Computed example of a mutant assay.
Amino acid sequence: MKTAHDLVTQAKSTVREIPLDQAEYAVRNANVVLDVREAEEFAAGHLPGAIHVSRGLLEFKLSGSPDLSSRALSFVLYCKTSGRAALAAKVMHEMGYRDVISIAGGYDAWVAAGKPVVKPL
């Protein structure tokens, strides 16, 4: 029986994960930056320009949102530490999205590096 860790490890072996030093460039040039954390995590702070789509609703939101349905869009995904983003990227590949990357270390690494975030007032 596989664990969550096993599934994340398997996903990371099949998706493109970029190191933090390439993340700002990727975020600036992506069509869509997706935060796949939970709503309260997103509300507490997120990358500038990111939109929120919880990992648990990803497939439904992609299928039901005309703005996100084009397989020609480039996506950068992130979560807290990169596990959920890797799982989300894997699912997106299975759905036919081809330009999907995730950020190694996720939001925590981004914040630790002093990169810009949007936080509530």
Results as ranks from 00 to 15, higher is better:
Met1Lys: 12
Thr3Trp: 00
Ala4Asn: 13
Asp6Gln: 00
Asp6Trp: 01
Val8Ile: 14
Val8Arg: 06
Thr9Trp: 07
Thr9Val: 15
Gln10Gly: 06
Ala11Thr: 00
Lys12Cys: 08
Ser13Phe: 01
Ser13Leu: 06
Val15Thr: 10
Arg16Thr: 14
Arg16Ile: 10
Pro19Ser: 11
Leu20Gln: 00
Gln22Pro: 02
Gln22Ser: 12
Ala23Ser: 11
Val27Tyr: 00
Ala30Asn: 10
Asn31Phe: 05
Asn31Trp: 06
Val32Met: 08
Val32Thr: 07
Val33Tyr: 11
Val36Tyr: 13
Arg37Glu: 10
Arg37Ala: 11
Glu38Val: 12
Glu38Ala: 15
Glu38Trp: 06
Ala39Gly: 09
Ala39Asn: 09
Ala39Leu: 13
Ala39Glu: 15
Glu41Tyr: 01
Phe42Tyr: 15
Gly45Tyr: 05
His46Tyr: 06
His46Val: 03
Leu47Asn: 05
Ala50Gln: 07
Ile51Phe: 03
His52Trp: 14
Ser54Lys: 12
Gly56Arg: 09
Leu58Gln: 05
Leu58Asp: 00
Leu58Trp: 01
Glu59Trp: 08
Phe60Pro: 04
Lys61Glu: 13
Leu62Glu: 04
Ser63Ile: 05
Ser63Asp: 11
Ser63Met: 14
Ser65Met: 14
Ser65Cys: 06
Ser65Ile: 05
Ser65Leu: 05
Asp67Trp: 12
Ser70Val: 05
Ala72Lys: 15
Ala72Leu: 15
Ala72Ser: 13
Leu73Gln: 01
Val76His: 11
Leu77Phe: 12
Cys79Met: 11
Lys80Cys: 07
Thr81Trp: 02
Gly83Ala: 03
Gly83Val: 01
Leu87Tyr: 01
Leu87Ala: 00
Leu87Ser: 03
Lys90Leu: 13
Lys90Trp: 05
Val91Ser: 14
Met92Ser: 03
His93Pro: 03
Glu94Ala: 14
Tyr97Met: 04
Tyr97Cys: 02
Ile101Glu: 12
Ile101Gln: 15
Ile101Gly: 07
Ser102Tyr: 02
Gly105Glu: 01
Ala109Gly: 10
Trp110His: 07
Ala112Glu: 09
Ala113Arg: 11
Lys115Cys: 02
Pro116His: 07
Pro116Asn: 04
Pro116Arg: 09
Pro120Gly: 07
Leu121Ser: 11
Leu121Asn: 11
Leu121Phe: 07
